[in-house]
Write a protein that binds this DNA or RNA. Structure first.
Lengths: 216, 216
DNA sequence: TACTTGCTGGGTACTTTTACCCAGATAATT
DNA sequence: AATTATCTGGGTAAAAGTACCCAGCAAGTA
């Protein structure tokens, strides 16, 4: 077990690796490990379990994406940050789909990369400001659906109350307690809601409730 | 049943009611109903089921808050918008806690109120730009906790994979299918995760997983 | 080699949720 | 007065999740 989890830098350009390592190790109590291609990156992630891995997207043999897919498949506990030269919207979207925590353009400064590492290590996302356009467009696409919730209008007041508590992931007995009714009644309300909304199967109501709770 | 759901305006000042009604009915296909105090507001909400209720916070007898509490208790299907003269942070926070969808200062223009109605009717929130300070402060408070998730570090890769699918509200059989393992194995992983994390009871893991999914 | 860790599955018992059925009480509408 | 909608609860059965037990196998470590 290490004292502090290290940070991995995977880039085929030795100059970039050395430069980054120098800055990071000088200005913070961070240990850096280096990989010069994707295969080595995977091996080192498995072995040293770094908290963060900075991956160059454009690497020979195994790209940053290949590494990311591998990490996902094995469920390795590491936050991924992509480092790339290209401001490409499709690449960015694929990276977000895959769940990377940071996305930094190489045209940005080292200070940005440090900020990125700090932010990601707090569990938040960090994206280069220069690609915020992409993010906004992406969000407006995702927020689009919002339809098919007309069924909600069929619900009675009590059914709404039950649904709110379902969305809070309360169990039926907890709901019964809060509303001062019997568990049996709660179950009936749930069933009625499901049939009004056409929901079937395990957790179907819970999914719907958490998704549309803002419209209750 | 009405053709289109109306909008309720509750304010003790007749001048405000008439002014708002005129603008709203002139510029859009909206029906407005008026209430001059909180009691009447509740009665009209029950009867006409408006989609949105604009509530003056400062009303005699029954304030906007009293109306809001009543609406919540009965689970009436209406989106609440608070209209107030005072830029008070505590009042704002109480309003957000209670779940109002809009919060508009009377110092703002009528155009803002129209924008607010439009936004809220799409299921989104609308807050007067002049109180965005409050919202930011509030968010930083709420986002604060972020602790107690150290237990996550105890999880094995496979356990993480299972947990991600739990967070997506998949059933055990769905998880088993996606990971190509038996349901029994999934159940065992869940149990191991729960004991590592000290979780007990119904939906405990699901709650935890959805809350901390960003750290997986 | 021996040991540990993680993944895989089976067994068993209990609890919770889902999915139907039913009916009485109450309040509002026709 | 009759009808409808809503809330309330009971019954039953199947499916899913929770909570423990167990053991074999593979990989890495001491």
């Amino acid at each position: 077990m290490d004292d502090l989890k290290p940070i991995l830098i995977a880039d085929d350009h030795s100059l970039i690796r050395k430069g980054l390592r120098q800055v990071l190790e000088a200005q913070s109590a961070i240990t850096v490990i280096e990989a010069e291609d994707g295969n080595e990156a995977i091996r080192l992630i498995r072995k040293h379990k770094p908290s963060i891995a900075l991956l160059d997207v454009e690497m020979p043999k195994m790209t940053g994406f290949d590494v990311a897919n591998r990490v996902l498949a094995e469920g390795l506990p590491v936050s991924l940050v992509f480092l790339t030269m290209f401001k490409d919207e499709q690449i960015f979207n694929k990276a977000m789909d895959i769940g990377v925590k940071g996305y930094v353009l190489k045209e940005n400064t080292i200070a940005e990369i440090q900020q990125c590492i700090r932010t990601v290590s707090e569990g938040k996302y960090y994206l280069s400001p220069t690609i915020s356009d992409f993010l906004i467009r992406r969000n407006s696409k995702l927020a689009a659906p919002a339809a098919d919730s007309q069924g909600i209008n069929l619900l009675t007041p009590m059914e709404r109350n039950v649904m709110k508590l379902v969305a809070a992931m309360k169990s039926n007995s907890e709901i019964a307690g809060e509303l001062n009714i019997s568990i049996k009644t709660v179950q009936n309300h749930r069933n009625n809601i499901c049939s009004k909304l056409g929901l079937h199967g395990a957790h179907a109501l819970l999914k719907f409730a958490t998704e549309y709770i803002s419209r209750l």
